[in-house]
Structure formats: structure tokens, C-alpha cells
Amino acid sequence: MRIVVCVKPVPLTVELDRTTARVDRTGPVGLAAVDEHAIETALRIRDSSEGAEVILLALTAATAFDSLRPGLAIGADRAVVIAGPEFEGSDLLGTSLALAEAARALAPDLLVFGASSSDGNGAMLWAAVAARLDLPVVSRAISAEVARGRVTATRQMEFGLDVVEADLPAVLAISGEIAAPRYPSFRDVIGAKKKTVEVLGLGSGIDVPAERVGAAGSRTTVLGIRETSPRGTRTIIRDEGDAHVQLAAFLRERRLL
């Protein structure tokens, strides 16, 4: 069985550039915690079945390759990275197209995603990739297992928990921090340096028209950004035994009682 995990190296602190409304990606990057949990989810599924492998897949800047090493150190077998300036500024359409192209070639039985990342926050990518590959999608999973050629997952939905299943191949998106990643040993960390990271680019592995990815392929645009007025005056008090009295007075003044 082959499991591919889509991971996104994200800036360690998310800052929106106040003039371009783009996320500042010049600082250090790392794997989002939710993506580490996605990798761990995949590793557990791999470990429970004979001869399975886990491959990391990322569309990212060439400078971010090293941020995948922790994923390899905890046990992913290898990584495939899609890079190139042509992909910069991709929205959901271009991102999903590039990832789907790479995934199609890898022909995974299970394609795993993290929950929404700290920067883009869309939580839509898995369904977009699944649509391109015409695969069933099971999202918001808080637990998942694979047996007898199908994936079964408990989903965390707004209306409660339910259980769904789909035959493989399928796309699985986890709901958050559901599987704390194992700690790598020193040997694992060293070993990770020897694992292969294959690099794909436009025309080399990703054979799609240039005008369908990057800013050219985007159907969404950021027009501008402006500051909003923060909330009005704030009152902060320290409780000296009568905070409840002052708070009640405040609520009464605001006609909330």
C-alpha cells in the first residue's frame, strides 16, 4: 500500500504584509503541527499493514526543502517536492492542479491531508485535489483506519461525530491534532538526511500548461487591504475581591443584564 501525505511548509510566524496582503514567506518555515499529525496518522496506517510506504508531497519554495526532514526523521520513506517560480501565487485551482498531477503519477492508495494550515486557512485543498483525481474524500477525521481495502473514519462535524467509509483509493483529511508525532531518535535524524527528496517542476513531472498554475492560473485576486478600527476603550481591573461587583456594574451599564 502506498500512502502519500500532502504537507505544507509554513512560516513559523504568520505575518500578513500590510501592503500586498500576502503572507510574508521570507522568514523561517517549518511543518505545520497539523501536518505532522497527518504524517503520524499515515505512519500508523503504514505500520499496521505489510509492505506499505509513506511519501511526503509538498508544493513549496526550493528553500523550504529542509523543513520536510523532520517528517522523514519520524519515518516517512521519501519525499517529492514540486517547486518553481511558475507556481508562485497559485490559488486553490493551481495548487490543487499541481498536487493532483504529482499524486496521479504516484498512484497512492491513500492521499492524506492535514487540517487547515495556519496561513491560508482554506480547508478546501483536499476536496479540490480529490475532485481532480475523481477520488472519494473523507474529511474532518478525528480517527481513521484502513482495512480490507477501505478507509473508515470518525468525522468531527458541526452537528456531532459520525462514522463514514470509502473504498480505496481515497483522500483522507484529518481534523486537527489527532495523532501526536513520535519522537525521532538521533539515528533517525541522521538517517533522514539520506532519504531521497525528488524535485518536480513545470515540464519535469508536472506537465500542465503554465497558464493554469501560479498567478496566471488563479481565478481569485487580492485587490487591497485596509486597517479597521479596533474595539473602543478597554477596562482592565485586577480582582481585589470585588471584581464581580465592578463587572456586574459594567454589564448593567451596557444593558446586558
Binding site: N121, G122, M124, W126, A128, A131, Q156, R219
Partner: peptide
């Protein structure tokens, strides 16, 4: 937006090659 709607909108965007702005 909801868990279900996000999956619907994403798939529809791909199938129609249409832009989706969220949030």
C-alpha cells in the same frame, strides 16, 4: 462555510474552473 460546504465548494471550483474566495 461548514465542513460539508467547504468540500462542496472546492470540488465545484475545480469542476467549473471557477475562482472561490473563502472566509
Amino acid at each position: 462555510n461548514s465542513s460539508l460546504v467547504a468540500d462542496v465548494a472546492a470540488a465545484a471550483a475545480v469542476r467549473l474552473d471557477a475562482g472561490v474566495n473563502w472566509d
